[in-house]
Amino acid sequence: DETGKFLVLALYDYQEKSPREVTAKKGDILTLLNSTNKDWWKVEVNGRQGFVPAAYVKFL
């Protein structure tokens, strides 16, 4: 159920650099879980949760 969740689009490829991050490919649609940090947003992609740089994604 996606009610109340926001989707964001990956603008660039991002390769995770730590276990707390997730890899995303340009064009991926990610479920935004938390955007309270202006630099790192928590997302879910391909069943995995983790952080990506906020500058790499935008709201749909």
Score class of each variant (00 low, 15 high):
D1K: 13
E2Y: 13
E2H: 14
T3E: 12
T3D: 12
T3H: 14
G4L: 12
G4E: 12
K5C: 15
K5G: 11
F6D: 08
F6H: 12
V8T: 02
L9H: 02
L9R: 06
L9G: 01
A10P: 01
A10D: 01
A10V: 15
L11Y: 05
L11F: 06
Y12I: 09
Y12P: 00
Y12W: 11
D13T: 06
Y14I: 07
Q15P: 07
Q15H: 13
Q15F: 15
E16V: 04
E16R: 10
S18W: 07
P19H: 09
E21Y: 07
E21V: 04
E21L: 06
V22Q: 04
T23I: 05
T23A: 04
A24M: 15
A24N: 02
A24I: 15
K25P: 02
K26M: 09
K26V: 08
K26G: 04
G27L: 04
G27P: 02
D28M: 10
D28Q: 13
I29D: 00
I29E: 01
L30W: 03
L30C: 09
L33V: 09
L33G: 02
L33D: 00
N34H: 06
N34K: 05
S35I: 11
S35T: 12
T36F: 11
T36C: 15
T36H: 11
T36I: 09
N37C: 12
N37P: 03
N37H: 10
N37V: 05
N37R: 07
N37Q: 08
K38I: 08
K38C: 13
K38D: 09
K38R: 10
D39T: 12
W40M: 04
W41P: 00
K42M: 15
K42Q: 12
K42D: 02
G47P: 01
R48G: 04
R48H: 06
R48I: 09
Q49V: 15
G50S: 01
F51C: 10
F51H: 02
F51A: 01
V52S: 01
V52E: 01
P53S: 06
P53K: 07
A55C: 14
A55Q: 11
Y56E: 02
Y56S: 13
V57W: 04
V57S: 00
V57N: 00
V57F: 11
K58Y: 09
